[in-house]
Design a protein around this nucleic acid. Structure first.
Length: 623
RNA sequence: GCACCCGUAGUUCAACGGAUAGAAUAGAGGAUUGCGGAUCCUUUGGUCCAAGUUCGAUUCUUGGCGGGUGCACCA
């Protein structure tokens, strides 16, 4: 007897393969199984008869089957023969349908067994096909001194889910965040801070005493001030450029002090006739940077995740410059118009600047320094980088360059991108100040939940309301971000994304809470499932339940969290339909049915909880 | 102009080359003297266009049309 339901799909594939081996001309033919969209066509379906028809006809001169359908009948009879030989009780029916599909229906004993199994285990087993594999995943990547906006929230939600999916397949996952703590955006902020301190006649110390979000608000205003001045005031522009060099230098100084690093760039040359005090800029820089990073931590905490390590551009800049200079000598890079470029056009892509004409590293150069540094700290088997899709083109060039320099690291690196967060009002911009911050969105979602509590009533006590509203609001946001395919843009209209009806995070939480409520009312019971005739709604729930581990594995393999969302929603729908059609605890319900339905309720709750957890979403017992 | 991504109900999204293209939402109509009505049921409505490959194309190829993003010293 084969293992019951460790992996049904593989078991069925094996069964069909055995049958094919007994038929001339199709031995070893790949068997493809799928779940028919209409359950009237069974639980599994294979198109093997259609795909192998031509080959079988060619291989056998005495081929006697006129159509794929007749050919399918022949395969089915062989499958049934094997099934009887090995006393297979997993499938109850195998038959031909349509133009030659072979449909397989799972037996009720199999379905009952998998139901039982789900409820016996605290967490469901997922095939650990990546056991021991070390995977480093970079995501979110907000820039210190700037807003943590909803694009970062999107990247964070996607990244965290990917990490959880990879971990559940056995991988050892390292979550890392890479942050742009140097560059013009930082210099603009510093200029703005200095200006504001002078205007408002206050010191950094005064701001330090304010709350984290107050400080961040201050930084945001400072950036806006600096950005505007940069465009309108030539003198300010000159000062900002100087401050930029000072920031780089400050980071370099630290590296020199800490590990005796040999400076790669002489920043002093850019600072000869500058009147601004390096010490002053350095202090503003270090303080503002710290405020920002502290603020980001509060965001990660609220999002329910934690990074294992952080990388900064100030560091990778130095590393990158060293690498580029070394490989310029070796001919990987070229000089062009006083800059150092990677000739991507020779690889069918486009050229990119790695060191600009002033001798400063660009983002590309820094990223090149990042790869070996990541490997140095965590010798990975695979490196995943998740970003918005606006840098797709650039990443293609970067990975080619990486492969030229460190073939091993280059081959281990994969870039995944998600779409843009589109708003009805147009694209987000930090310059026009029309940024939607993650914090604002999370507060807004929470407030909407509070409003629903007020309107519809709630079963929660006063002191539970706040924490629960937070969980439901977060569920609404994360689910809205994760439920569709990663490639396309997300349209973020509030009424759609924060709707708590239909295909939403709160719908799943509601279903979970409903299940828990039923189980609490049922009190203690002893599962003793007996095979009986199933109602249609009961059958539909069971047909969803056994697929959980399969769906999770697929979502992990394909980096497609939306598959898990779709699955959980289908399960919840099937359960709610059962709930509405049949009584569970009513007096007239037969004991056998009561037990079955309670087991279905318990399993649904478990699967929803585990599934939502993989999406980084918490369940609530009451709402 | 060139490159990449994307065109599916009014809207937001599914569909590993498979069967009658599924959901949600909006619209219309309904359901509880019961376990949570943030639920459920019924109904209206769709593959941008044209060729090609295939037993079979929303999916693959080519060409249009439409949208997004990017195209050297920002990240």
């Amino acid at each position: 007897m084969p293992s019951q339901d460790k992996n049904v799909t593989e078991h069925l594939q094996l069964l069909i393969s055995k049958a094919l081996n007994e038929i001339d001309g199709v031995a070893g033919f790949p068997v493809h199984l799928e779940h028919p969209s209409d359950s009237a066509n069974g639980d599994y379906s294979t198109n093997i008869a259609m795909t192998s028809f031509a080959a079988a006809k060619k291989a056998d001169p005495n081929f006697q089957f006129q159509t794929p359908r007749l050919w399918a009948e022949h395969i089915v009879s062989t499958i049934l023969k094997i099934k009887n030989q090995q006393n297979d009780e997993i499938i109850s029916e195998v038959k031909v349908a349509g133009s030659g599909f072979i449909n397989l229906t799972l037996s009720s004993s199999f379905l009952l067994n998998s139901l039982k199994r789900i409820n016996e285990q605290k967490t469901q087993d997922i095939h650990n096909f990546q056991k021991g594999k070390k995977i480093i995943v970079e995501f979110t990547d907000p820039n210190p001194f700037k807003e943590f906006h909803i694009g970062h929230l999107y990247s964070n939600s996607v990244g965290e889910t990917i990490c959880r999916l990879l971990a559940t397949t056995g991988a050892q996952v390292k979550r890392v965040c890479y942050q742009g703590d140097v560059g013009m955006h930082v210099a603009k902020s510093i200029w703005g801070i200095r200006q504001k301190l002078q205007q408002e006649k206050i010191t950094l110390q005064h701001i330090s005493e304010r709350s984290t979000s107050e400080r961040v608000k201050f930084l945001g205003q400072a950036y806006a001030l600096g950005a505007t001045a940069y465009e309108q005031d030539q003198n300010a522009q000159k000062e900002i450029k100087a401050m930029n060099f000072m920031c780089f230098r400050s980071a370099q100084d630290q590296l020199v002090e800490r590990e005796g690093w040999v400076p790669q760039i002489n920043y002093a040359q850019f600072l000869q006739d500058v009147e601004i005090s390096y010490q002053e800029v350095k202090e503003i820089y270090n303080t503002g940077r710290r405020w920002s990073l502290e603020y980001f931590e509060t965001m990660y905490h609220r999002l329910g995740m934690k990074f294992d390590d952080y990388y900064f551009e100030s560091l990778t800049a130095e590393f990158g410059v060293k690498i580029v200079q070394e490989y310029l000598q070796k001919g990987v890079f070229k000089e062009s118009q006083d800059a150092v470029i990677f000739p991507g056009s020779e690889y069918g892509l486009h050229d990119r600047v790695f060191i600009n004409s002033l001798g400063l590293p660009t983002y590309e150069c820094k990223e090149l320094g990042l790869a070996p540094e990541k490997y140095h700290r965590f010798p990975y088997d695979e490196s995943i980088i998740i970003t918005g899709k606006e840098i797709d083109e650039y990443f293609k060039v970067l990975i080619i360059a990486l492969k030229e320099i460190y073939p091993d690291l280059g081959n281990k690196t994969r870039h995944f991108s998600h779409g843009m967060v589109r708003l009805p009002e147009g694209k987000m911009s930090s310059r026009t100040g029309k940024v939607l911050t993650a914090e604002w969105l999370m507060d807004e979602a929470k407030q909407r939940v509070m409003n629903i509590f007020t309107e519809n009533g709630t079963q929660l006590s006063e002191d539970e309301i706040d924490a629960t509203a937070e969980k439901i609001g977060m569920a609404a946001i994360k689910y809205a971000l994760l439920k569709s395919n990663l490639g396309a843009d997300i349209s973020f209209s509030f009424n759609e994304s924060l709707s708590f009806q239909g295909n939403s995070g709160p719908y799943l939480q509601y279903t979970y809470a409903r299940c828990r409520s039923v189980l609490a009312k049922a009190g203690e019971y002893f599962p003793d499932l007996a095979t009986a005739e199933f109602e249609r709604e009961e059958l539909e729930v069971m047909r969803q339940l056994y697929q959980f581990s399969e769906v999770v594995e697929k979502a992990a393999r394909e980096f497609a969290p939306h598959r898990l969302c779709t699955y959980l929603f289908n399960l919840a729908q099937a359960y709610n339909a059962l709930y509405n059609a049949h009584s569970i605890l009513g007096d007239t319900v037969e004991p056998v049915k009561r037990l079955l339905r309670l087991e279905l309720t318990a399993a649904t709750a478990r699967i929803i909880q585990q599934g939502l957890d993989l999406l980084g979403i918490q369940t609530v017992e009451k709402m």
